[in-house]
Simulated scan of single mutants.
Amino acid sequence: MDFVIKVMPKGEIELPDEIKAQLRPGDEYQVFLIENSIVLKKIQKELDIKEWFRRIEELGPDPNQPTLE
């Protein structure tokens, strides 16, 4: 999927909603300059147990959870 963004006079960029939806507070990215391209690569952090449970809780109940019925 390709997106076009515009650089504002002060250097800010407006990201499309599809990109913003992938970003989470605290995420970190490496930035690479390759010829005439700028590449962002997410830094994968190891999850601690607290963060793992937080993410599971964020997902909510599984509608396909098997039951004993």
Rank of each mutant, 00 (worst) to 15 (best):
L68D: 12
F32M: 07
P16Q: 06
G60C: 09
E18S: 12
D48N: 15
N64T: 14
E14A: 05
L23M: 12
G11D: 05
L33P: 00
G26R: 06
V39N: 07
F32N: 02
I34K: 12
I43T: 09
E35H: 08
I5A: 03
N64D: 15
V31F: 09
E14P: 00
K45V: 12
F32K: 07
D17E: 15
E28V: 08
T67E: 12
K42S: 08
V7W: 01
M8F: 05
E57V: 04
I34W: 07
D48Q: 09
P16G: 06
E35F: 04
D2G: 09
F3T: 05
P25G: 01
K6D: 05
P61W: 02
M8H: 11
D27P: 02
I38H: 01
V39W: 00
E57D: 14
Q65A: 14
I13A: 06
D27N: 14
V31A: 07
K45I: 08
P9N: 09
E14M: 04
P61C: 05
P16A: 07
M8W: 03
V7F: 05
G11I: 04
L68F: 12
T67P: 00
F32C: 00
I49F: 14
E51C: 02
E51W: 02
D2V: 02
N36I: 00
Q22R: 14
E28C: 04
G60H: 11
E28I: 03
P16H: 10
I34N: 06
D62C: 14
E58P: 02
Q65D: 11
L47N: 09
K20C: 09
E58S: 10
K50A: 14
E58C: 01
I19Y: 10
K10N: 14
Q65W: 11
D62G: 11
Q22F: 01
W52K: 15
A21I: 03
T67G: 15
E14Q: 08
F3M: 02
E46H: 08
